[in-house]
Amino acid sequence: QFSYLCPENWSPILVLANVRSGNNMAQDLMGEFQTLLNPIQVVDLDSTTPYKALQLCTLLPSHKTRVLVCGGDGTVGWVLDAIDDMKYKGQEQSIPYVAVLPLGTGNDLSNTLGWGAGYTGDITTEEILQSVLDGEVTKLDRDCLVQACKDLDQKIELELDGERIALPKLEGIIVLNIAYWGGGCRLWEGTGDKPYPPASHSDGLLEVVGVYGSFHCAQIHVKLANPVRLGQAYTVRLILKNSVMPMQVDGEPWVQGPCSVVITHKTQALMISPSKRQPEEDVQSASAQGTVES
């Protein structure tokens, strides 16, 4: 390690880019970041796994590294899974803080954290790096999903913290731990015309809502209707009794057979949200402050 050689207030930046995101925009951004940072700090996730890339953090001062993930929600989830692996392998002191440059299609996690619904090239790479350095650390709940398949009949059962919930006639059940869903819809909030328990991405609680169909979803998107708020819970259990049923997690779909799905709190990730303050510092300081010397 060479952390003892680093200045006390130094915060290095590691850029992890998914070149398959954003119509190859990540490929162009990688080249720009490499002109500002040491090339070792800019990693192509198409050729290097997040876990391997994050091992650079173990050589740097504890809890000082800031990681910028360039990609969609799926890419961010991939990086956060690698950070969980670091925790399990005793590298807790090397866990970085994570910021997002949204290059995916939905970008709901990025939107929740304040980084916006999609990067359009309206700010420079220097400004992006400065925003990462100035950003405020926030906690993000991470949940795990467990499936135990067995033969069941043709109904769905929902339990919230062990309590059975009576379901109206629905076409979909959605479990949330962030504010945005479906490409920018604040689903739990709905129209905002009725009081409802507040939602947070760092309180350990999951929000569970139902929808009557695709038209109902469209109404919620334009704030003409509210979702069916089924409740909040630390543990959600769904018993799927149909022979096959469509499901998705973080935008990744599949067809699921009869099973019991349990979603419960797993850990928390240390994320970065844009600073509420706008410092007057020269954005060029991002290059000097965020570069590892060869």
Rank of each mutant, 00 (worst) to 15 (best):
L101A: 02
P198E: 04
V209H: 01
A286H: 00
L129K: 01
I174E: 13
M247S: 11
V261T: 12
V67N: 08
T58L: 03
P246N: 03
K87W: 05
R164H: 14
P12R: 06
A233M: 03
G90T: 08
P7F: 04
Q154P: 08
S260L: 00
D81Y: 00
Q256E: 10
A17D: 04
L5P: 04
G104R: 07
A199R: 01
S62P: 13
D143C: 15
H63L: 08
V100H: 01
D122F: 11
G116P: 04
G290W: 02
D122S: 13
V292N: 05
V137C: 12
C217Q: 06
L68H: 10
V222N: 12
C144N: 11
Q268M: 05
P246D: 09
R186Y: 00
H221R: 15
Y180M: 05
L167C: 05
L14Y: 07
Y234M: 10
N177R: 03
R142C: 10
S131T: 07
N226E: 14
Q284K: 15
T105H: 06
L152V: 07
D81G: 01
A117K: 11
C217R: 02
D153T: 15
D85V: 09
D203H: 09
Q256G: 01
K89M: 13
N177D: 07
D84H: 13
L206A: 03
K52G: 03
T48E: 11
L29H: 00
